[in-house]
Amino acid sequence: MTNKSKVTLAIENFVRVANIVSNLDKILQEAKNLSLTAKNARVVALRAGDSAYGFKPITNFIDEFSELTIKTTKNISLLSSNLFAIALAVVRYSEFQQRLNTAFEITNHRDIAQLQHQGNIDLLRTMKQLESAITHLESYFEDILKQMRSAEYIAVTSRVEASNAGEFSESLQSVSNFITSAAKKIKQAINDNLKEMHLIRGALR
């Protein structure tokens, strides 16, 4: 692998990090919508009274996992600025190496060789930091995926309960549909991120 391609790979990884961070916004937005939906559903369930008795605990569940998803996503957002800084450091060290290699071709001076050696150590260190940050992120995404699996389960249960809610059946049915759709969007965003992370990991190796 040439050093030029290392710079290119580092820049591509930087763009992938940007995609990951951009997807985080989508996840956070959907989680916030879920939380709002839970609050609305609770009001509808209260108005429906006994006919929506089984729906009340479901609204609590929706609220719980949406809050959890918001919290996890916010934790990820804190990590993401660090991820950007590390990815940028990898770009800069890769470029430094590339420029040093050109300088060494002009004059194979001992000082340049030493800089190349130190630069390589720094580059490897930042690449390891990036890999470790990616692994850390991955565990958060796995958590959200679990929460979304619960969401899908709840959507199925809530659809059954909604069908027993008489005149409120339609509104509660739309709540169930919304949960399914939000969970699907969040899972899609996470899967996109996991793919990007897989590519970053491949490039780092």
């Binding site: 040093l100 050109t102 300088a103 002009i106 004059t107 001076h109 000082d111 340049i112």
Partner: peptide, 17 residues
Amino acid sequence: IELFSPMLASLLKHVKL
């Protein structure tokens, strides 16, 4: 940036890093 490599190589003829 474009001049960094030749600059570094040239400087080292005159001064230690």
